[in-house]
Amino acid sequence: MSYELSIIVIGALTGVCCSLVGSYLLARKMAMIGDAISHTVLLGIVIAFLVSSQMSGIWMYIGATVVGLATAYFAQLLHEWKVKADAAIGVTFTTLFALAILLITLFTERVHLDLDHVLYGEIAFAPLRTWEWFGHSLGPQALWILSGLMLLIIGCYALLSKQIRTITFDPAFAQVSGMPLRRVHYLMMTLVSLTAVAAFDIVGSILVVAMLVVPPATAYLMARSFQQVLLYSALFAIVAALGGYAMASVLNASIAGAMTVCAGLIFAFIFSLKIALRKLKV
């Protein structure tokens, strides 16, 4: 696979993973939780690094998932203690992020963590990090990680399609009918954290934050069912990855940034189209 193609495929896979879990967040009216988790996984990465002295591998995923789940849990707990939902998210993620920055600077000689890289990533380097197996190159590791993650997400959706449909459509009914609301919710939060940390490592957090919400929101404007939201948002994510790559190579600018802007342009286009159509009808 050529270098350019790998970048586009990595971007598209990130977009698809993010937009699939993001659709759930959007339907549950929790869009900002995704933003919060994609910031707080930094704390998990730092703690994992201090424990294991490695910047990659299984510890990073475990640390980030635990902190991601803790973020969702604390925000929910504060909300149950009569704190408004948005304020609960705000105080949780800023506190955990401040802790992460503090730890990084305290152990700065031990943590070789390039903060700029973490926050806005460099997708251009992702294809260069490959896995080898008995001397054979298996291709970029990002492709393997993201494809595995996508299969995991699709598998969860397939297994729990009935529950997820009910929970997203009518959480109150799901609760009364005795569905394992909490378990499904924290399973989804695990997927969000896994996606955030995988993508964090590969493309940087800004593309994660964008892809978690912008394609699902665009899809939400025109879809008639939750399945359609999933389908359209994955499609928009892929288009954004393609268009963003083209835009970045013309301007010679950040690829992740350009993919984000492209997703925004698609949203703006569908949004104005909807308004124009409504005006025409009236």
Partner: peptide, 26 residues
């Protein structure tokens, strides 16, 4: 002008603006 709620609108504007900023910066 849409059925999207405040939190979704916040997240959209935040990420797209920051992405644009990043692109301009690079």
């Amino acid at each position: 002008h849409s059925k999207l709620r405040q939190d979704a609108a916040l997240a959209i504007v935040l990420s797209v603006f920051f992405g644009l900023g990043l692109m301009l910066l690079t």
